[in-house]
Design a protein around this nucleic acid. Structure first.
Lengths: 90, 90
DNA sequence: TGTCAATATAGGCGGGTGTCGAAGCAAGGA
DNA sequence: TCCTTGCTTCGACACCCGCCTATATTGACA
């Protein structure tokens, strides 16, 4: 459970997830993502792998490019953990 | 934004937050929390401080004990970030 | 087949983080 | 006033993580 939050513990990865999700069709390929950061390709690749190992995103190769998309059910599960009953429940 | 997720990147802290939130009244004092883990007091205190610095919980001293409670608005803000539009939105 | 473009993997360096024991405070009671 | 209890702070050690460069892999195309 915390493994998924750990994957989101880096600003780059949060932004990556947001970028992927906000792309038309919910998909984006790596080059588009890389160009949004001042980081090298391998570093972006590393972050994408972390997100993928956490089960937050998935990918598929289409010719030369690799497309990534988010896995909504995984995010919903995280979101559910944060839905806490209000403090004053007498 | 990622700072809050970073605070949740440790299993102990996720469990702490869950324990605090699930306690009657939404509050818990430290000794109760500590006894749920095989960790020393200082370590629990450290994790609580991380959660507090991230704005996820707050605390108050009442006599000898210190009570902690979660800040629902902070969790709601995190939860909102995870609410992603579905992949297929044509 | 050979070459190029797009990603991924491997390895190494520097800084950050979890954990502990020991010591320090605060509050209450003998 | 001194002691005990609950919790935090301090200092140190081992480990993990993000970043880079260099190298490998995969697919398209000539």
């Amino acid at each position: 459970m915390a493994a998924a939050f750990k994957a989101l513990s880096d600003p780059v990865r949060v932004r990556l997830l947001s970028l992927i999700a906000s792309h038309p069709g919910g998909e984006a390929y790596v080059n588009t993502l890389s160009s949004a950061f001042d980081l090298t390709g391998p570093t972006i690749s590393h972050h994408l792998r972390v997100l993928r190992n956490a089960g937050l995103i998935d990918c598929e190769r289409r010719g030369t490019w690799v497309f990534y998309w988010v896995i909504p059910s995984a995010l919903e599960r995280l979101s559910a953990v944060l839905n806490v009953p209000a403090k004053t429940v007498p």
